Simulated assay, not measured.
Amino acid sequence: MRLPIVLFSSAVLASCAPDGAPTPTPVSDNANRPESTGAAAPPAASPASSPAAAPATALVTSLAGEWRVAGIDGADFNEPVGLALSGNADELWWEPRCARFIRSYRISGTGIQFGPPAGAGPPPPPGTPPEPVCTIGLLPRLPHVMRALDAATTVVRTEQNGVLISGGGHSLLLFSQ
């Protein structure tokens, strides 16, 4: 009488398994299990420590592209009007370029150095009127962005795939657009 119940139970359990699902096999050799040898079980890998969830380790080698300012000096950039920067292999700027918010840059490893735009030349002699620039309303936080760039000494990729430029007590968080 016991045999039909066992067979029936096995048939019911087998019908519950999804098609193609591997059937579990009992472990017959406990000699390799930590609890049978008295050794401590290895800690379970947390999502943050697993290779798939590890932060990007790629170095930032260029600021070429279009960037959205997401943070200034550690605070989120939550303004009514967004602030975007454009870059190429040598410079980072705010449009329109005629507003002269342009910085050249050089990246070496995680170090970065910003300076005046390439070909800017020396400043005009005292008393000489500056070269005409376009007339455009400037965003209020734009000087803060330039201050952060001027003070910057490091550039790193964040876990969220942003670019954090920092140094001299200032920082700028950018995300590619």
Rank of each mutant, 00 (worst) to 15 (best):
I102N: 08
D150K: 06
G109W: 02
V156D: 09
P129C: 07
S28I: 12
Q160Y: 00
A14E: 04
N88W: 01
C16T: 11
P80A: 15
C98Q: 01
L63Y: 10
P117F: 11
A21L: 09
P123H: 05
H170F: 14
G111F: 05
R68L: 08
S28K: 12
S86G: 07
A21F: 11
S86P: 00
H144A: 13
E79I: 02
L172F: 06
A64K: 15
T61Y: 03
D73Q: 06
T154D: 12
S171D: 14
A152N: 10
Q177M: 08
P47E: 15
P43W: 03
R147K: 14
G82L: 08
R106G: 14
F77E: 03
I102Y: 00
A39Y: 00
A11S: 11
L138T: 12
S28T: 14
P143L: 04
T23N: 09
I165G: 02
L63R: 03
P22C: 05
P122A: 15
L142A: 07
P18C: 03
P126D: 04
P96F: 02
D76K: 01
L149Q: 07
P123T: 05
A14K: 03
S166N: 09
I112K: 07
P125T: 05
A70R: 00
G82W: 03
A45V: 15
T23L: 12
S36V: 06
I72P: 02
R157T: 12
R2E: 05
S171K: 07
V133D: 04
P4Q: 06
I72C: 04
S176F: 11
